[in-house]
Design a protein around this nucleic acid. Structure first.
Lengths: 202, 202
DNA sequence: TTATTGAATGATTTATTGATCGTTCACTCC
DNA sequence: GGAGTGAACGATCAATAAATCATTCAATAA
């Protein structure tokens, strides 16, 4: 049904405007409805609740980032380790920029990961899938020699946790964060890089 | 002055009893004073405030852990990488056990790191100093080849951040945590291990 | 029938008040 | 005169009341 989707888009746009400007708590369903020239009750024909509108917004942002990260992962001009570095650098900068442009988005993220933890976990899992792609390709190319790429991807996410959680950025500038990310990546990339000579040289 | 220190110990003991049992917020200075058979005002002759009593308790716990970690670092029967693994494992278990035995200690840690961030940073710095010791010794033994041991120690702390912040232990069992710590340590230890043949074999 | 409304409802938030607590200090006791 | 007291003060916290808001649904309009 096209009409329903169009309406959902309208609502999402109106909600996004208010949510990013005034925050989640200070945006009311009545206001969103008013912006869409409809009654509050009618919103529930398109979304099952306020949190689901926020979720739709988060989904859009998440998808945008995912596409960006996937481009990096599939960029044929980058080596495996360059992909890993670019991946986490882009991820961190995306988070930093969103927060810089509109701190309200932080409140949104907090609420969503509290009310809909499955969604937040899903986002992490999607990113892990991309990492798995890089690691597998790296294995195939002889850059890495990783037995369990899924487990290793998890461990990498664990080690680089700090760079996707602004709560843990204690007043650090983006410069310092970048330097720290690079430092951790140095160790990790070295840690997963195949130290043996390439097989065809043997 | 011996008397003053004895009195401080008495106060710390009384406060610890209550703080670990009822939590920081629900423990009053009047109660602590009463337990020590003195008036509330008199507590201020030994500590400059409630938070400083809590700090003294945290200092004790911190010192205990530090001694334990230092034993590991200076254990002559362990290799450099074994020291690193044992170090972070002991650290995580210490945190886990303290939380398990008395969840109120978590509130204490939260308040202290908010009210006295310098203390919390100092604790981290002291642990980093131990790590630097291991890395330097490892360099000397040819196990590692780390140009800047302080920076690398910082990066290791960053990568293993999750295992000292229970906030980030999302309902994980100690078993799963242990497995994850091991996984991250695998990468890190591999990442800092010298891949060249030992110099005397050259 | 389907789309929409808007008043009713109960949960949550905000505002207000009263009580509690940390801290100070003029004073007492040894 | 140093050690200790406890009433006084302002800040913080808890309890209550008032208001706001998300959500529902019977009624209405298309």
């Amino acid at each position: 049904m096209l009409c329903k989707d169009t309406m959902r888009d309208t609502i999402i746009s109106a909600a996004m405007e208010r949510l990013l400007h005034y925050g989640y708590a200070k945006t009311t369903m009545a206001e969103i409805a008013c912006d869409c020239n409809m009654s509050p009750g009618n919103l529930y024909r398109y979304f099952s609740g306020k949190i689901d509108i926020a979720l739709a917004i988060a989904e859009r942002h998440g998808e945008e980032l995912f596409v960006h990260l996937r481009e990096i992962v599939r960029d044929k001009t980058l080596s495996s380790s360059q992909k890993i570095r670019a991946f986490f650098s882009a991820y961190m900068h995306d988070t930093y920029d969103k927060l810089e442009n509109d701190p309200r988005i932080y409140e949104l993220a907090q609420i969503i990961s509290k009310e809909r933890p499955d969604f937040a976990n899903g986002q992490i899992a999607k990113k892990r899938a991309l990492l798995v792609e890089v690691l597998s390709a790296g294995n195939a190319a002889g850059d890495f020699n990783i037995p369990d790429v899924v487990f290793t991807a998890e461990m990498m996410q664990s080690a680089l946790l700090k760079f996707s959680y602004p709560q843990l950025w204690t007043r650090l500038t983006i410069d310092k964060l970048e330097r720290e990310l690079d430092g951790v990546l140095d160790i990790i990339v070295a840690g997963i890089t195949n130290t043996k000579k390439s097989p065809d040289a043997a």
